[in-house]
Each structure stands twice: as C-alpha cells, then as structure tokens.
Nucleic acid binder design. Structure first.
Lengths: 184, 184
DNA sequence: CAAATCATGTAACCCGTTACATGATTCT
DNA sequence: AGAATCATGTAACGGGTTACATGATTTG
C-alpha cells in the first residue's frame, strides 16, 4: 500500500524546479544542454513525469496569462519529499548501483540540508567507499588470476574510478571543514 | 521494420554464455555475485531475456538429461551479433551516456576481436575522451562561477572520473603495445 | 528430515523510449 | 514569409522490477 515512491528522474525534476520554477520545456532544455546527465529530455518522458508529480501533490503549476506556458513550482509537500530524499542515509548498494543518484543528491543539497547533514553525507560516503574499495581489492588479489585479461582490466578500471570518487570525497570534506572554520 | 536490437543486458548474457555455456540460474549467479555490475539477477529479468534471445536465434539450449536444467550456448548468428556489437565504432554519446556499456564491451573482447580491433577501440576511446574532457573543462571555465557550489563540485567529480578513465585507456594501450612487441 | 540452495518460470505494473502531432513565437 | 525554436502533449511498445509460485537437489 505504501505510495509508489518517485523515481530518480522525478527527484531530478523536483530539484530543478526547486532551484527556480520552470516550464516542462525549460526542464527539457536543462537535460538536453547541461551535463546534468543521463536523463532523457524527450517530451514523452518529461510531461508524463510532471503529471505524476502533480497527482502526488509535489508540484503545482501556474499557467501564465496567455495560456500555453505552464510554470511549475514545488509545493510544501514537494519540498519535504525532496529534502527527505536528500537526507536519506547512504547504503553500500547505492554505491554499487546508484552512484549517479548519489551525485544527483549532492548536487541539489545546497540550500536544503544543514551543513552538518552535508558533512554526514560526505563522511558516510567516504567510509562506505573505503570499505567497498577494500572489498574490491581483496577480490582482485584472490580472483584476478582466474579472470580473462579484459575482464581483469575492466575490473581494475572500476577500482580506479571508485578511488577517484574517494579522493573527491576527501577533498570536498576538507573544503567544507575549511569553510566551516572561516564562518566562525 | 529493422529488427529490434538486443539490449545491453542481452549482450551481457551473450558475452557470458560465450565464455562458457550456462544455465539461466548460472547467469543469475554471475550478476548476483560478481562485480559485473548493475544488471539485475532476478528471474523476471533473466528468463524472459533468454526467451527473447532464443526467438532471435542467437542462443540455443540443450536440456540436460534429467530434465530441469537448461544449458544455453551461442549459435553462429549469436556469436556474430556479439562480435558486431563489440566492434561497433565508439561515439561521443556512448561516452556521455553509456560508459558502462563500453566497459562491458571491453570486458568481452578477449577472444572475439583481433588485436588491431582492440587497439582501435582503445585509441578512439582515448581520443574521444580527450576531446570530451576538453569540452567539459571549457564549460567549467566559462560557467562554473554561475553554478551553485554543489552543482560545481559534482561537475568537477565528473571531470575527474573521465580523467581517470582516460588514464586507464592510456595505461592499457601501453600494456597492449608492449605485449604486441613481445610477441614478435 | 529440515533447511538451504539449485532451478525455472509467470503476471501485473510502470517507467522510459520512440514516434507522431500540433500550434505559437521569434528570428532572419 | 519562411525557418527555427518554443511549448505541450498523446499513444504504442517493450523491458525491468517486484512478487508470486513450484519443485528438485544438496547439505548439515
């Protein structure tokens, strides 16, 4: 019975119209032109998604005078839903299968989470990454000799990528810590 | 009219049963236990996919004596389809939106592509990455000051990730070049 | 013998893709 | 005036998720 929860595309839309109210077309353009990646900008994706969000009461639309243009903005419930999603604890499975979504979340945190919540996001992200990388390296030590060459090399690329993310985490944490100090 | 082309999951399955014939359950276990990522191992995914591949004539199954177990292997057409997919030229959109699929392809190249085809894969991958990273860095220079802090940081992580992939490409190319020399 | 694992399937649901369609507004 | 872009939608289709369901075989 628990209400169907929004997809990550839905959250991307919520995040965008939280930054500023937009039309469906405006959202499409963002997905088309910015690196805010992966998400399809086709009308068959965006307009039905907006309809869903309307039905869930997470967005509202103000039709502008003349008629055609529909500008969407978040409802209170919508902002809460977005905030909830942003504040969710990270799990290892997120790291394994939903890395992109984690960065989508990070990208929308600006003014919706407290500094301490952001720090917690980054520290648990870092800890889970460290742990996961260790698992991968252990697997690599034990199994890599049985893997075909290309499989092994692809696997090594995976490890390198996670390490890059870990570096980024640590760098960003340092930046935030410094910023926190300067504010005192 | 052009026949529906297989999904990347389909190709993952083809690649696996090319390595060695497997049962549906065997395939599920691979997706469940190895880092061979993302792909769902649920029966509702795998068995229908195998049915599709059967209908396309890309795989065949030998039911083992007793009955229940069905071992799938590639047909000639299946091997050709797999090879074709592996040998496809890389496009920039692949890099933007289908990085995972590129590595899936790489991971299955072992004995299906020639050394020169592998080298071409890596060199065009490298060239496209270099070009794309340049685009991203240009965008970063021009636009980053207008981006919210978190958006900018997430974007920078994206760039760092592509650079890691580029490094990997270059390292792997060197390795292959060295190997080629040793074989003369 | 009970529990875990091996092994295969079906059915409802829904999101995203693709293609089609229309009209207003702006630019050249 | 014609072209490009702005702007919004619908409809068919299909693949993946989730949940349900069953039975054989192996392990403790």
């Amino acid at each position: 019975m628990t209400k169907k929860q929004p997809t990550s595309l839905d959250y991307a839309i919520l995040g965008l119209i939280h930054q500023e109210p937009r039309t469906g077309y405006g959202i499409r353009k963002v997905f088309e032109t910015t690196a805010l990646g992966n998400y399809s900008s086709s009308p068959g994706t965006i307009y039905p998604a907006l309809k869903r969000l309307l039905k869930l009461g997470l967005v509202e639309s103000k039709p502008t005078k003349a008629g055609k243009k529909n500008v969407f903005h978040l409802t209170v419930a919508g902002e809460k839903a977005l905030q909830n999603w942003l504040a969710q604890p990270i799990l290892q499975t997120d790291i394994e299968k939903k890395n992109d979504e984690l960065f989508l979340r990070f990208a929308f945190m600006d003014d919706l989470l407290s500094q301490s919540q952001k720090m917690e996001f980054l520290t648990t992200f870092r800890d889970l990454l460290q742990n996961y990388i260790q698992q991968l390296e252990h697997y690599h030590q034990v199994e890599s000799s049985h893997l075909p060459l290309h499989g092994r090399l692809a696997f090594e690329h995976g490890i390198a990528t996670y390490k890059t993310t870990l570096d980024w985490c640590e760098k960003t944490l340092q930046l935030f810590t410094k910023m926190g100090k300067n504010e005192n």
